Amino acid sequence: MAQQGSGQQAADEEPLEFTDDTVDAAERELAHRERGTARPITVVGNPVLHKRCRDVTEFGPELAALVDDMFASQRAAEGVGLAANQIGVDLRVFVYDCPDDDGVRHVGVICNPVIDELPAEQRRLDDSNEGCLSVPTAYASLARPDYAVCRGQDLEGKPIVVRGTGYFARCLQHETDHLEGYLYIDRLAKRDRKDALRQMAEGTPRYETVPND
């Protein structure tokens, strides 16, 4: 993808075993959410959304508590993915509770995520609509690969590799973009970006947001 961070691994390198993030998905999400507290969502224009986040280097109780709050915030906002900077935290971690195109539920957390670059022959683009909790009430068509491999670390700092197709692939790419300091509207043509911001200005968020000064 354009403007990804450094340190990407090529898709043809020896992969780690893919993480099965579908096992006990509902139970794991509920446990995180019940321990956490929902926080308001930052919106486009907030400086924390427009810069690359700091790497996660400490894997302990503070990170675990943050992730619990992120799951609670994601559910309160009825989202399928949430990056730490969307609740004002400058840290490279995101959570997700997202179905794939077959309706299979994926739940997990990825620290320091990197999206593999796909060979040209494997890049099949899906131009479905995309939305973002940080651009509330707005949607726009955006072409992204319909398959994604995301490498990172779990809450204990252990390496993980998550793969997704369709809607879930879009989620993995969208949330990784957030931690690089990009919103999906930054990938749109100028006219489409302007239209998304108009939709946001005319709409009313269904969840609490952080007003920009």
Rank of each mutant, 00 (worst) to 15 (best):
A201W: 03
N112H: 01
A83H: 06
D24T: 03
D90Y: 05
A76W: 00
V210R: 06
A31I: 06
C171P: 11
K158R: 15
G60R: 05
Y139W: 14
D177L: 07
L49Y: 02
R52C: 12
A201I: 00
Y182G: 00
L82G: 01
R33M: 11
L91M: 11
G181E: 07
S141A: 14
A140T: 05
A26Y: 03
Q9C: 01
N212S: 03
T204G: 02
E13M: 07
N112R: 04
N85M: 07
Q74C: 12
F18A: 10
L142M: 07
E14K: 12
M70Y: 07
V93E: 05
E130W: 08
T137L: 09
Y139S: 12
D116R: 14
E202S: 10
E14L: 12
V48Q: 05
G36N: 10
I87F: 02
A77L: 04
I160A: 00
A72M: 03
D68K: 04
L82K: 00
G152C: 03
V95G: 03
R39S: 10
P61V: 13
I185M: 03
P61M: 01
D126W: 12
I41D: 08
P47E: 05
R193W: 08
P159H: 04
S6V: 10
I110V: 15
E27V: 13
G203T: 10
D21N: 14
G108A: 03
Y207L: 07
D126Y: 01
D12A: 06
V107I: 12
V44K: 02
R191V: 15
V48S: 03
E34V: 10
P40D: 01
V162F: 04
E121M: 02
D55N: 07
V114Y: 00
C53G: 08
Q199N: 06
E208S: 10
A189K: 15
R92G: 04
Y182E: 05
D55E: 14
D69F: 12
P205W: 08
C150W: 01
V44Y: 05
G108F: 14
I87N: 07
T19W: 04
R198L: 15
C171K: 02
A38S: 15
V114R: 08
R75Y: 11
G166K: 06
G166V: 10
Y207K: 07
C53E: 06
K158A: 15
R35C: 09
